[in-house]
């Protein structure tokens, strides 16, 4: 029995766990995002996802989305974690970028210039303006909003993938898993926000902050 079979069998033994890729990742102690069960992205979709992730969080003086493996994370989420509804919105959104570029620049998205791609993505953001997320009535619970438009989806996945990555949490932000104290400090003493506390420490109100997240204007 090779290692892969062993892990698969363990997944079966553990029973009831939805995705053996998750089990595999957890058991082997590697990055929980590595293995995609079923490849569903076409080459163009893969490439466009890379370009988009890089446009949302580019490399600056710190690593960007590509350095942090975010395109792979997005592909995993879309292939493995998204519902059919969400997946359809994602692929339609990718297609809409192509359609926009072909109409306005006579090229598909990937063959358009950097400026043209930005214009296309800005249009995708514009398209979200009239979108109203459903209300979340129980603040103790964070609910998923399946129907949110493409731009919000890819932005959310890029942000989540990046700031929870080692590169994003440690190099762009500051990460301290064992602070040993809770105290006031000046922001200038750290200069960055803290990488995610492993769980957002808000007592019983995660849904409340989710509501805030839904509001797209301060």
């Amino acid at each position: 029995m090779n290692r892969r079979d062993l892990l698969k069998n363990t997944a079966i033994l553990m029973g009831g766990i939805a995705s053996s890729s998750v089990v595999q990742a957890m058991l082997s102690g590697v990055d929980g995002r590595v293995k995609i069960e079923k490849i569903i992205f076409s080459w163009d979709q893969k490439k466009m996802t890379q370009v988009l992730a890089d446009m949302i969080i580019p490399r600056t003086d710190t690593p960007g989305a590509i350095d942090a493996g975010v395109p792979h994370f997005i592909e995993l989420m879309v292939s493995d974690w998204y519902t059919e509804t969400e997946r359809a919105i994602y692929f339609e959104g990718v297609l809409a970028l192509d359609t926009y570029c072909e109409k306005n620049f006579a090229n598909n998205f990937l063959d358009s210039s950097a400026q043209q791609r930005i214009a296309a993505l800005e249009q995708a953001e514009q398209d979200t303006a009239s979108y109203k997320p459903p209300a979340n009535k129980n603040i103790a619970v964070e609910t998923e909003d399946e129907s949110k438009p493409f731009f919000l989806k890819i932005k959310e996945l890029t942000v989540l993938g990046y700031y929870t990555s080692k590169e994003g949490a440690q190099k762009e932000l500051r990460y301290d898993p064992m602070p040993m104290r809770y105290d006031d400090i000046d922001f200038s003493a750290v200069g960055r926000q803290w990488g995610w506390p492993p769980v957002v420490v808000v007592m019983r109100c995660s849904g409340l902050f989710r509501n805030q997240n839904n509001k797209r204007s301060v």
Binding site: I56, K155, E156, V159, Y163, L173, R192, Q212
Partner: peptide, 22 residues
Amino acid sequence: DWKMMSGQVKGFGVRFKQALRA
């Protein structure tokens, strides 16, 4: 934190990344 703010800060790219630093 960045998760709450990412829905509030519009746009993308260098300025967006910079805005989520604090």
